[in-house]
Simulated scan of single mutants.
Amino acid sequence: MEGVGLSAVPSEVWESTELIKVDLSRNSIQELPVELSSCINLQTLILSRNKITHWPGAILQSLPNLLCMKLDNNPLRQIPPGGFQAAPMLQILDLSGNVASLPEHPAFSSLPHLQELYLRQMQLREVPSEVLSLQQLRILDLSQNSLQLVPVEFKNLASLTELGLSDNNISMLSPELGLLEPSLQALRLDGNPLRSIRRTVLDRGTKVVLQYLKDKIVED
């Protein structure tokens, strides 16, 4: 039911308890109906580009099989400190564009199975520290924020294959980032005022950049 002008979800949608995926993106939905709680087999919930203001924690607790949730580009207010505990099996979470949604110390460690995390356009000034504990994380997108530093601890995210850092305020990269080679396949750095790496190196792509950084560790 993507982009069909809904302000509320028709009750017939929830009559089937066999629902595995629901796509309600690009509508005008402000809150989720309680009937959603009965969809215990739901694995994917896409709510992108709606008018949702509150974190649906109570409903999420009734969806034990939920693996993917996309809440990007909603006017979402701050997520409660323990909000992520409502969906501990999540593998994919997109909160992009929800500027005020993250609490001061977002408890991403409550999502130990997370493989993809999208935090674009959230005016982040630093990487939330608990992101660095997500050992299964494969894709992390932090583009279009206000980041100035890339934490050295990124080197411990051994499963990372894609790291999006485009359009931030990053001027230097820690050489330890090179330790993510060869698992890291895509490192996106365009739109940053980088001074520590020559443009000729950057233009040659992820593999060359990571090798360059790794070589700097040996030099240091």
Results as ranks from 00 to 15, higher is better:
residue 2 E to V: 10
residue 3 G to R: 10
residue 6 L to G: 01
residue 7 S to R: 13
residue 8 A to N: 09
residue 10 P to W: 09
residue 11 S to M: 12
residue 11 S to Y: 04
residue 13 V to S: 04
residue 14 W to T: 03
residue 16 S to Y: 07
residue 17 T to Y: 11
residue 18 E to G: 09
residue 18 E to H: 12
residue 18 E to Y: 07
residue 20 I to A: 05
residue 20 I to N: 00
residue 20 I to W: 03
residue 21 K to M: 09
residue 21 K to F: 08
residue 22 V to Y: 01
residue 22 V to S: 00
residue 22 V to W: 04
residue 26 R to S: 15
residue 26 R to Y: 09
residue 27 N to A: 05
residue 28 S to F: 15
residue 33 P to H: 04
residue 33 P to I: 07
residue 34 V to D: 14
residue 40 I to W: 14
residue 40 I to C: 11
residue 42 L to I: 04
residue 42 L to F: 05
residue 46 I to W: 02
residue 46 I to V: 14
residue 46 I to E: 13
residue 48 S to H: 07
residue 51 K to H: 15
residue 54 H to M: 13
residue 56 P to N: 04
residue 57 G to K: 12
residue 61 Q to S: 13
residue 61 Q to W: 05
residue 63 L to S: 10
residue 64 P to E: 10
residue 65 N to E: 08
residue 65 N to M: 13
residue 69 M to Y: 01
residue 70 K to E: 15
residue 71 L to K: 06
residue 72 D to R: 05
residue 77 R to N: 10
residue 77 R to Q: 15
residue 78 Q to S: 08
residue 79 I to G: 09
residue 82 G to Y: 00
residue 83 G to Y: 06
residue 83 G to W: 09
residue 83 G to R: 09
residue 84 F to Q: 09
residue 88 P to Q: 00
residue 90 L to D: 07
residue 92 I to H: 15
residue 94 D to S: 11
residue 96 S to E: 08
residue 97 G to T: 10
residue 99 V to N: 07
residue 99 V to I: 14
residue 102 L to V: 04
residue 105 H to N: 12
residue 105 H to C: 12
residue 107 A to R: 11
residue 107 A to F: 00
residue 111 L to G: 02
residue 115 Q to D: 08
residue 116 E to K: 12
residue 116 E to V: 13
residue 116 E to C: 11
residue 117 L to N: 00
residue 118 Y to H: 15
residue 119 L to I: 04
residue 119 L to S: 05
residue 120 R to C: 10
residue 122 M to N: 07
residue 125 R to T: 10
residue 126 E to Q: 12
residue 128 P to T: 06
residue 128 P to C: 06
residue 128 P to N: 08
residue 130 E to M: 00
residue 131 V to M: 08
residue 131 V to C: 01
residue 132 L to K: 04
residue 133 S to P: 00
residue 134 L to A: 06
residue 135 Q to K: 11
residue 137 L to R: 02
residue 137 L to N: 03
residue 138 R to M: 08
residue 138 R to F: 04
residue 140 L to N: 00
residue 142 L to H: 02
residue 143 S to H: 07
residue 147 L to Q: 01
residue 149 L to Y: 09
residue 154 F to S: 11
residue 154 F to L: 14
residue 156 N to F: 12
residue 157 L to K: 07
residue 158 A to P: 08
residue 158 A to E: 09
residue 159 S to L: 03
residue 160 L to Q: 12
residue 161 T to H: 07
residue 162 E to S: 15
residue 163 L to R: 11
residue 164 G to V: 06
residue 164 G to C: 03
residue 164 G to E: 05
residue 165 L to Q: 01
residue 165 L to M: 03
residue 165 L to I: 00
residue 169 N to I: 11
residue 170 I to L: 06
residue 172 M to W: 13
residue 174 S to R: 09
residue 174 S to K: 03
residue 182 P to Q: 07
residue 183 S to V: 15
residue 183 S to E: 14
residue 184 L to G: 08
residue 184 L to D: 02
residue 184 L to H: 01
residue 184 L to Y: 13
residue 184 L to I: 02
residue 185 Q to N: 13
residue 185 Q to M: 10
residue 187 L to K: 01
residue 194 L to R: 02
residue 195 R to H: 09
residue 202 L to D: 10
residue 204 R to S: 13
residue 205 G to E: 14
residue 206 T to K: 08
residue 207 K to L: 08
residue 207 K to N: 14
residue 211 Q to Y: 04
residue 212 Y to E: 11
residue 213 L to C: 05
residue 216 K to V: 06
residue 217 I to P: 02
residue 219 E to N: 13
residue 220 D to G: 15
